[in-house]
Amino acid sequence: MANLQLRFLLVSLFTSIVGEAQYVMQDAALMHYIDRRFQSLENRLEKCNQDIMDYVEEFRDFSKRIISRLEGLNVYKTEFKNEVEHLLTRVERAQRDIDYFASGRDSDACVEVDEDLVEQQQIEEAEERRKIKLVLNASCDNMLTGIKSLKIVKKTGDAHGSWMKDPGKNHPKIYFLNRSKNNVILEFANIRAFMESSNMLATRRVILPTHWQGTGHVIYKGFLFYHRYGSLNEIIKYNIHKRNITDRMLLPGAGQMPAYELFPTTKIDLAIDEQGLWAIHAEPDIGGNLVITKINHHTMAVEYTWDTSCNSKNAEAAFMVCKTLYVVYNTPNGGTSRIECVYNVLDALNTYEVPVLHFPKRYGSHSMMHYNPREKEVFAWGDGSQIIYKLETNQKV
């Protein structure tokens, strides 16, 4: 009887142990299943997150490309509009000339009409000159008679570059723009700091968002005006203090050829005189002669344009003094710089005669010449040297 009870207890215990083992195995299998499911979900979530990141990056690249193309289209649209307006002006001029020459074959009655037309044209030209005088400061009537002295301030930087003061601001700061393609402006407190500085890296640096082209840039009333590298004829207006681009424009007809044959990197040469901002460039349509344009520095709009009689061949630089263009010529190998062509915008039809003006004897060449109307000096860059020329002027008779 005792043996029977013992067997019954052993069977019950064995059955209980086997049942618990089965439960443990089932729980383990369940946990393994849940773990695999979570692992699968985590993998899917990770892949989903990666897909989202890839999509965001692809969308950013796509947006950048679209914005870049839209900006390009906007520039092309403005350039096309300006070119069309410039072409229409030329067509109107040509049509007037054709009408005038065609009338010469008509009767005497028509000749009287032509005389009336000529008289009307003279009246219109006089009215146009009157308007120009109102825009320009008619009291500025001095002409350059000589170059008094030469001062080599410093010799630093590359063979080509530009340096200047801001004639529109009453401060002595010096701005140094090295090379004909760059985007870094160095700013010095005054000319003494510039002369004594031996470590250019320690000076205040202004980094432009785009590179400049050539050496024809100017600083006026706190803004840098420069020809943007890679563009045909885009001029940028950059706020030096706020460090941002505030405006831009396309200069009609410019950028097709160098402004000066001896320095082909400069396609647009900007200048400052007593009247404000000017642009100088050469056009192949008029035999490579220089064209000067008066620009409103506030609105970046063209006010007037003049085709000059000064040619870009063998020219190395030019500058404006009192609404008059002075073009400097040299030899391809470098020699004595001299002013051989002068053009005054108010005497556009009959430029007054002036003798050839030679710069102080210094063999070499200039890659930049800019007039400072506040100090009556020309800042120049010649073969890596920063130079100042003192000018002599007299009132035009």
Score class of each variant (00 low, 15 high):
G255T: 06
L87V: 05
I295C: 02
H227F: 02
I174C: 05
F223K: 10
K151D: 03
L150K: 10
Q213V: 05
P360G: 06
V11K: 03
N233L: 01
Q122K: 06
T308S: 03
T89H: 08
L349H: 10
K64Y: 12
N170C: 02
R179V: 09
W381M: 12
K81R: 12
K155T: 15
F379W: 14
I295T: 00
E83L: 03
K181R: 14
M195R: 14
L41G: 03
D269F: 07
V218H: 00
N43S: 12
V113M: 11
W306R: 04
H32K: 11
Y352W: 10
L325N: 05
E353I: 07
Y238L: 03
E119V: 10
K242Y: 07
I66L: 15
R228C: 12
N49S: 15
H281R: 08
R248I: 00
V291R: 09
R130V: 07
E127Y: 03
L45D: 07
D108K: 01
Q26M: 03
E127L: 14
A301L: 11
Q39T: 08
V84A: 06
R90D: 02
D114F: 07
P252W: 06
S385M: 02
S385T: 06
R65T: 09
L262N: 11
L208D: 04
K173T: 00
N244K: 15
T351Q: 15
G364V: 08
L6E: 13
L325V: 05
D307C: 04
L30R: 07
A259S: 14
S180H: 11
Q120T: 13
I123L: 13
C310T: 04
A202V: 02
C48N: 12
T145L: 00
L251K: 01
D247S: 15
Y23E: 01
G288Y: 03
K376R: 04
T145V: 10
A138F: 00
Q26K: 10
I66S: 09
V56C: 06
T210P: 01
F80A: 13
H160Y: 13
M164W: 09
G253I: 10
E124P: 08
T156L: 07
T89Q: 14
A159Q: 12
E340T: 13
K169P: 03
E283T: 11
H160S: 14
Y226S: 04
C48V: 09
M257V: 13
L290Q: 06
K376E: 15
K169I: 01
S40A: 09
T299G: 06
H298S: 09
V24K: 07
A94I: 14
R60Y: 14
K165E: 12
D97S: 15
A380D: 15
N182R: 03
I219N: 07
I52D: 11
T331H: 08
P252N: 05
L250K: 01
Y229W: 11
N82H: 02
Y220H: 11
I292K: 02
L250F: 15
G335P: 07
I67Y: 08
D54L: 14
P209C: 05
V135K: 08
Q121N: 12
G222Y: 07
S63M: 13
E79D: 07
A254R: 04
V184P: 04
A2M: 03
T210S: 11
V135E: 13
L349I: 11
S16W: 04
